[in-house]
């Protein structure tokens, strides 16, 4: 007996329902106008009996593997650091599903268009640090990260190495893995990959739930320049350069952002 004649009447409605389910999983954009918000939502439903205030349940997004995990407070004393040697498996990154990529892209755009990145940045631990900065003691709760036979130190988005008078702030070493994202990490979607960006470093989620420092991906668009980016004029076009990576100013979602581009 052929199944297709039976399945055909249900295939189209099921596919429509699937698409609708995926659409409704996209986060609601927060515009400062009714017109902007209403164009985000689907067609309005027929007016129902007015619900009492108590029965309205706000939607709580469940943590997704690619979502920013809750920051765990680290209170370990300095003489009890955790040493992790990271095996070199850069190809084994967590692969998000297409709907997760779409959701991340929508959330990133919604945050960007609100244009609050400059103020938010000032609330993060890493915003007070820049490469080459010397400190005499590490912050409480730091982690020791082993990488290629060398020990680095990490706290709150800032990486350190031994320095002449204690420790020195360094650029995040590629392939270093941290258990949690730095505070305020920006979600950046490039193609079908979800990156996280903070203090000039890009991170990719790993299958074990950790986050690996990776090279800046070409085409990434970020809201803030790396801490030590310097302006470079090339053929009359202003670029910014940090660690040999070129950032081109663009207007994205109505605010200035910076795209990683090939060296001009």
């Amino acid at each position: 007996m052929k199944l297709f004649p039976i399945l055909r009447p249900v295939a189209l409605p099921v596919s429509i329902l699937t698409v609708c389910a995926l659409c409704y999983n996209l986060p609601a954009a927060e515009y400062g106008s009714l017109r902007g918000n209403n164009r985000s939502s689907g067609p309005s439903q027929p007016a129902q009996h007015q619900q009492p205030q108590e029965s309205r349940q706000p939607e709580i997004r469940q943590p997704q593997p690619e979502a920013r995990p809750e920051q765990r407070p680290e209170q370990r004393p300095q003489d009890h650091p955790e040493q992790r040697e990271v095996p070199q498996r850069p190809d084994e990154h967590f692969q998000p599903a297409p709907e997760q990529v779409d959701r991340a892209r929508a959330e990133a755009a919604d945050t960007r268009r609100q244009d609050i990145a400059p103020e938010r940045q000032q609330s993060y631990f890493w915003s007070d640090y820049h490469r080459g900065m010397n400190i005499d003691r590490l912050p409480g709760g730091y982690r020791r990260i082993g990488l290629r036979g060398h020990n680095y130190f990490y706290f709150g988005g800032v990486f350190y190495d031994n320095g002449p008078s204690g420790y020195v702030v360094i650029a995040p070493p590629v392939d270093a893995e941290i258990p949690d994202l730095p505070p305020g990490a920006e979600t950046v979607v490039v193609g079908s990959s979800i990156y996280y960006y903070a203090a000039g470093a890009f991170y990719l989620q790993q299958p074990d739930g950790g986050y690996l420092v990776v090279a800046p991906p070409m085409g990434a668009v970020v809201s803030l320049l790396p801490p030590d980016a310097t302006e470079s004029d090339v053929n009359g076009i202003a670029y910014y350069v940090a660690d040999g990576v070129y950032y081109l100013p663009v207007m994205q979602n109505g605010v200035t952002a910076f795209e990683i581009v090939p060296q001009p």
Partner: peptide, 16 residues
């Protein structure tokens, strides 16, 4: 207004 929002994802507050 609609093109700015739909095509460029721009928020124009109080545009109502």
């Amino acid at each position: 207004i609609d093109s700015a929002r739909d095509d460029y994802g721009i928020d124009l507050p109080l545009i109502d």
